[in-house]
């Protein structure tokens, strides 16, 4: 029996991984089933596929884009990564994969900085931090059909060779807002200077994983009041902070019949539409933890008031743009817990 099962799993593991299947599982959610983007960046455009090598794909998957939504796919095997690349390449059979020499491009980064401020910063940000918004769209108005990626990102810099960046600037990416800067009047030397400047963005990466693990998962305070008094105090505190109460319910609502419910576990939901909108506009995935919720529990004679720790969310979602909203939500939660237990 044991042998059989081992044999079966071994057979599965050595079978050729299916690129389309893996792409559908891991990438399609952000890049679209056919790589058309409209979501994150498109991956299927010939102008893109003919100007990036396989190493760029491989390293982009391995490193992700810390703080820019795309996760690092550390558990995919080399064979699986190659299968995904082959699948992506199959969209444009005519666009042959280039290969780049890995020699650094020699340029004047100081001059490049000037050119960057002039020609690139409007889209890529003054520090190369990328455009606003994320790879995961929600049907909403946006400034550009494709958000300019972050260039100061350790994931990007770790994946892109100087010559790949240079090629992107020389040729642009047809079908995207990224145009050819040769055609915009820059000389090849100017472009080398910009490449050197972009390379100088390199900063050590803070792994979202490590940041995530450094934050406690929840905020908890003990109340010296009764459960009912504490629930009322939570509601007052939320209303006092301009939140609208949505409802309260028991943790077990919907799971047990009314007579059987544990009435000592109460969840209070409240919302502020402006806040909700701002957070969702940054990253629609945060709706997973909205509207706001405070849980009040009585157990063994103790009354506890608890929330999730919003500070973890920007790391969890790997989205640095969420940091401010998460800090704000953290302060709201901490204040409410404090006021309700005062």
């Amino acid at each position: 029996m044991l042998m059989l099962m081992l044999a079966a799993t071994a057979g599965e593991a050595t079978a050729k991984p299916k690129g389309a299947q893996l792409y559908g599982q891991h990438c399609a959610v952000c890049h679209g089933e056919n790589g058309t983007g409209g979501v994150g960046v498109p991956l299927a455009l010939p102008g893109f596929l003919s100007s990036v090598d396989d190493a760029y794909f491989r390293e982009t998957m391995r490193l992700g884009r810390p703080g820019r939504v795309m996760p690092a796919f550390t558990r995919l095997s080399d064979a699986e990564i190659n299968a995904i690349i082959a699948h992506i390449r199959s969209w444009q059979k005519d666009a042959a994969a280039p290969s780049f020499n890995t020699q650094p491009v020699k340029g004047d980064a100081k001059h490049g900085a000037k050119l960057f401020a002039q020609h690139c910063a409007t889209c890529h940000g003054d520090q190369g931090q990328g455009g606003h918004g994320t790879g995961v769209t929600f049907s909403r108005p946006r400034d550009l059909p494709i958000i300019a990626p972050a260039l100061n990102n350790p994931g990007f810099l770790g994946a892109a060779s100087d010559n790949m960046i240079k090629t992107t600037l020389m040729k642009g990416r047809a079908g995207t807002p990224m145009v050819s800067f040769l055609e915009q009047g820059l000389s090849e030397q100017d472009i080398d200077d910009v490449v050197s400047y972009v390379r100088s963005f390199a900063t050590p990466a803070e792994s979202p994983q490590a940041l995530l693990e450094a934050e406690p998962a929840m905020l908890v305070m003990e109340s010296s009041y009764s459960l009912e008094e504490t629930v009322a105090a939570v509601k007052r505190a939320a209303v006092g902070k301009n939140f609208r109460l949505i409802r309260d319910q028991y943790l077990e609502d919907g799971l047990y019949s009314e007579e059987e419910l544990n009435s000592k576990q109460v969840m209070v939901y409240f919302c502020n539409f402006k806040f909700l909108y701002d957070a969702l506009a940054l990253d629609p995935r945060v709706g997973l933890f909205l509207p706001c919720r405070v849980t009040v529990v009585e157990q063994d004679g103790k009354v506890l008031v608890m929330t999730i720790n919003p500070k973890r969310l920007s790391h969890l979602f790997n989205n640095a743009e969420l940091e401010r909203a998460c800090d704000e939500m953290y302060r709201v939660y901490a204040d409410i817990l404090e006021e309700a237990t005062l």
């Binding site: 049907s139 929840m218 908890v220 943790l251 709706g287 997973l288 529990v297 506890l304 608890m306 999730i308």
Partner: peptide, 30 residues
């Protein structure tokens, strides 16, 4: 959630409650 599991875990690990029950967000994109 599984009713008995939620009841049992929330009793023994009250600090887990902010993350209970399990949740999945679902939203339209075009």
């Amino acid at each position: 959630g599984k009713p008995e599991e939620i009841r049992d875990l929330s009793a023994r690990y009250p600090e887990l409650i902010p993350y209970l029950p399990l949740q999945i967000a679902i939203f339209a994109e075009a």
